[in-house]
Amino acid sequence: MIGWLKKLYYPIQAGHYRLEKHSIGLTIGIICAAMIGGFVEIAPLFTIDETVEDAPDMRLYTPLEQAGRDIYVREGCYACHSQMIRTLADEVDRYGPYSLAVESKYDHPMLWGSKRTGPDLARLGGKYSDDWHVAHLIDPRAVVPESVMPHYAFLADAPLDTASLPARLTALRRVGVPYSDAMIANADRDAAGQAQPDSDGADGVFDRYGDATQVRRFDGKAGRVTEMDALVAYLQILGKLTDAAHQMETAGMTPETEAAQ
């Protein structure tokens, strides 16, 4: 066996000895060797239909929620919080039905995370009241004394930059999120409207994003729209863009979760 391998190996080594004299040869060799794996694993994810489930009820982020998502990214919440419930029994018991690919279909970029210093947030929407979130973000240790989460009190006073939202939604449309022209044109008004239920803007939000959209004063204050409004609106929609994960669970169609040993 060893002898046979040796026979195979010597010509390779001789060839390699020659290759080492050519920088371009090495360059090409490295590129070829290093590209195969990535291509085989990534390209099919775009072409195989089963990769992402169908969810006809999947809705888009409203401009206010998208603005909140951008704040979530800006503040690095993903450094401590995952948004990906794995197919493990204890995770499903702790956080809810495991995450489906379709649920992050419109997430540019995805925020699955890699470290749970704090709990998973994939199914956070509706778990707490707006007031709880506002109080928790302003001073986490006032709500949960042992928490190590940073405070985000400044969000409550920071006016939300709504002017850039049409441009943001346009960019998102370019990368594949199906926002309509009307959604883009009204993005700034819709953002304000969603946080001001008694304003004229609120009706437009229902028209464009559906009657189930949550329209209220997320930060609990009338008047201007703050970054707190946006972030809480985003936190309250987490896991609620589609009902697909819950349907799968009740239909018992789940590829069984794996019990931890």
């Binding site: 379709v102 649920e103 992050s104 279909k105 419109y106 997430d107 850039s164 943001r168 990368v175």
Partner: peptide
């Protein structure tokens, strides 16, 4: 500010 060309599972991979 920019938005990743990929989303969700493709973005993760």
């Amino acid at each position: 500010k920019s938005y990743s060309l990929f989303s969700g599972v493709q973005d993760a991979m």
